[in-house]
């Protein structure tokens, strides 16, 4: 722990909130789907930083699980998009 973890975690959280608002406001339905990406990357980043900023190693397990679920979700999404024809 170097003392930088918590400020950076806070910075990422602010980033996440701004990005979520921007995605929610997005002009098209596809823009709102960007939220799915945000939780996979920024969410896990915040969790591992919190783990090292004093939250304990158990938060790394949570981050790992979040990443794992995001990966399974991502692969399932992509497979669906790949298998089905023009309409989905």
């Amino acid at each position: 722990m170097t003392g930088f973890e918590l400020p950076i975690a806070l910075f990422l959280l602010c980033n996440l909130i701004v990005a979520l608002l921007a995605a929610a406001r997005g002009p098209t339905a596809a823009d709102r789907m960007l939220m799915a990406l945000l939780f996979g990357s920024t969410g896990t980043g915040v969790l591992v930083l919190l783990a090292h900023g004093g939250g304990g190693q158990v938060l790394v397990d949570v981050a790992l699980l979040l990443a794992l679920l995001a990966a399974i979700g991502g692969i399932a999404f992509a497979r669906r998009a790949w298998q089905r024809g023009g309409d989905d």
Binding site: A30, M33, L34, A36, L37, G40, S41, T44, L64, A67, L68, A70, A71, G73, G74, I75, A76, F77, A78, R79, R80, A81, D88
Partner: peptide, 15 residues
């Protein structure tokens, strides 16, 4: 894991 998630989800959203 996060890379796999992003790769899959971004293709699904683009499509």
């Amino acid at each position: 894991l996060a890379l796999a998630a992003s790769a899959g989800v971004s293709y699904a959203i683009a499509r």
